[in-house]
Design a protein around this nucleic acid. Structure first.
Lengths: 110, 110
DNA sequence: CGGTATCCGCTGTGATACTG
DNA sequence: CAGTATCACAGCGGATACCG
């Protein structure tokens, strides 16, 4: 089925997509997880030294709720939690590439 | 020359690109201007009834400064101003398409 | 180890009034 | 017609302390 595409509906669709990326640390977290990598909470903290625990938790929770990140809980002592991208999260990679290329285009066009 | 691409530099590049799109009304304005359309200030106001004059001015000024929108001033009475996309602005169209498709993918993947 | 809870400042947005 | 100026407010993110 075809969707009708008015300026309003198109802008709305893109905004839905962008909302998933909004948040000061989400892109950085994603780029650390691309390639199917799994990282523990503490490994993410070390990979992103400037982030606070609060923000790391908050951003991960939102990304999980949005379906880009999955949380893998290993029941053991001490507790171990790993984070990775979902299939949908990995599908974002080419889109982000396109955005990077668009940013580069600016220099070429002027 | 090749750029080295660390998670940090990649996230940074994407953030630069996204900053241009941030702002409550910018996407909506862009979608009204795609296809080489030129619209007057008052036409944009009518096309986007919920926007205030302040926000329309502010978003247009920022988009102009960022290089996605161009302002065409016709010296006549009464004054006439038209807004359109720059070449770089129009180059964003396929990228936004990719984002739309990514958003649609979510439903397919679960 | 992997989190929560709380307080607080800053920036983006809205409402409204005014202007060349 | 096409703006500018001012005030008010909500939500994001930072700092810090505490918890199972």
């Amino acid at each position: 089925m075809e969707k009708e595409l008015t300026p309003t509906s198109a802008a709305d669709g893109v905004e839905q997509a962008l909302k998933v990326l909004e948040g000061k640390w989400k892109l950085l977290i994603m780029f650390h997880l691309f390639g199917g990598k799994l990282l523990r909470f503490s490994e993410l903290e070390r990979a992103i030294p400037a982030i606070t625990q609060k923000m790391l938790t908050q951003q991960l929770r939102q990304m999980e709720a949005d379906g880009v990140v999955r949380r893998i809980l290993h029941h053991q002592l001490p507790p171990k939690v790993e984070y990775g991208l979902t299939e949908w999260g990995q599908a974002l990679c080419p889109v982000l590439d396109a955005l990077l290329k668009w940013a580069d285009l600016r220099d070429d066009l002027r």
